[in-house]
């Protein structure tokens, strides 16, 4: 017996190390391959201006994906992020353009209100799905409509524009070619990574995603953690809304349509399991970068819109298939 178990245990430990390395490195390698391919096939891919562009274009999706990672890790899904982004943006836009406010105060108030709006919907998603045990797919499908309707209602379907000049300038600021907005997203990546890998809170989220009942029976308040995960996602959406406004200088109730799907794609490509319990923020960062690099590189290659869309779809499926393959390879 001893022999058997020591054998299986050591094989397991080897497998596990290999698995961890493969998981994150696999996505990283895919990203590097993409970068090499585009560098060789296009003239402008590896220029500092283009890298700045890619980082700018990745930012909003990355921020949403960080929040989405928390929700997917507990086995949930948030389909409302695109709509909530629009709602948070128009609330913030309304606050920012209130007459008679000092620009600095206006921007600060707007930021707070965008995050508050996101948190409000995150709480709603979390409370309803956790309290009644309704699949978050259904609850967030509902809030998707509620948030969109609320955004239209608040604005009477009109676009809000002309934010303070300093805010607008801040949105285009770069430090050594790296957009400030992307640095904010990176900061969120670091926070998310820390929370998920180094705190009790993160540990319990993984526990819930893997085995909710075992986690509950180990004395953890599953309800609280579920609501918290959705609330974090909502807060990330609020930050995403402010980033949107800083980058484009408008806030409209019809922005963000379909953003949830991009965020989910980034999380999945990043190796997080849709059934929860497995994945990481670093994977999500790489997943978002793959989507951004692909969108950028395919345009530089001069591929048509329709080809581009098809290739992006293939990549999503390929990522999940590769993930399955990796899993099988490392399991045996």
């Amino acid at each position: 017996m001893d022999a058997t178990e020591i054998n299986s245990a050591s094989a397991g430990s080897l497998g596990n190390t290999a698995k961890t390395v493969l998981r994150e490195a696999g996505i990283g390698i895919a990203l590097i391959v993409l970068i090499i391919v585009f560098s060789l096939t296009t003239q402008h891919f590896l220029t500092s201006a283009n890298i700045t562009n890619i980082l700018t274009q990745v930012t909003i999706n990355l921020v949403l994906s960080i929040g989405m990672t928390f929700v997917i890790l507990i086995g949930g899904i948030d389909l409302s992020v695109g709509s909530v982004l629009a709602f948070a943006a128009v609330v913030a836009g309304t606050v920012m353009t209130l007459p008679g406010l000092d620009p600095t105060v206006a921007v600060m108030l707007a930021t707070v209100s965008a995050v508050a709006a996101g948190i409000l919907f995150g709480l709603l998603n979390g409370l309803v799905s956790a309290w009644w045990g309704i699949p978050s797919f259904i609850v967030t499908l509902g809030t998707l409509n509620i948030a969109r309707g609320a955004a239209l209602q608040v604005t009477g379907a009109s676009t809000i524009y002309s934010f303070p000049a300093a805010f607008n300038a801040f949105g285009s600021q770069t430090i050594y070619g790296v957009p400030v907005l992307f640095l904010i997203a990176l900061l969120l990546v670091a926070i998310g990574w820390f929370v998920l890998s180094r705190t009790v809170f993160g540990r319990v989220l993984y526990g819930i995603g893997n085995n909710e009942e075992a986690t509950r029976l180990a004395g953890h308040n599953v309800f609280f953690y579920k609501v918290a995960a959705f609330t974090i996602c909502g807060a990330a959406v609020g930050i995403g809304a402010i980033i949107y406004m800083a980058r484009l200088n408008i806030a409209s109730p019809i922005i963000g349509i379909g953003f949830e799907l991009n965020a989910i794609a980034a999380v999945i490509i990043g190796g997080t399991s849709l059934s929860g319990g497995r994945g990481s923020i670093i994977g999500t960062l790489l997943g978002a970068c793959i989507i951004g690099v692909l969108a950028n590189g395919l345009i530089l290659l001069g591929l048509s819109d329709f080809m581009r869309q098809m290739i992006t779809g293939f990549v999503i499926i390929l990522a999940v298939v590769l993930d399955k393959y990796r899993e099988r390879l490392t399991k045996a």
């Binding site: 001893d2 058997t4 178990e5 020591i6 299986s8 245990a9 050591s10 094989a11 397991g12 430990s13 497998g15 596990n16």
Partner: peptide, 14 residues
């Protein structure tokens, strides 16, 4: 307890 490393997944155990 007979195990390889504390970081191994529980699924590797008998």
């Amino acid at each position: 307890l007979k195990y390889g490393k504390a970081a191994d997944p529980a699924s590797t155990l008998s």
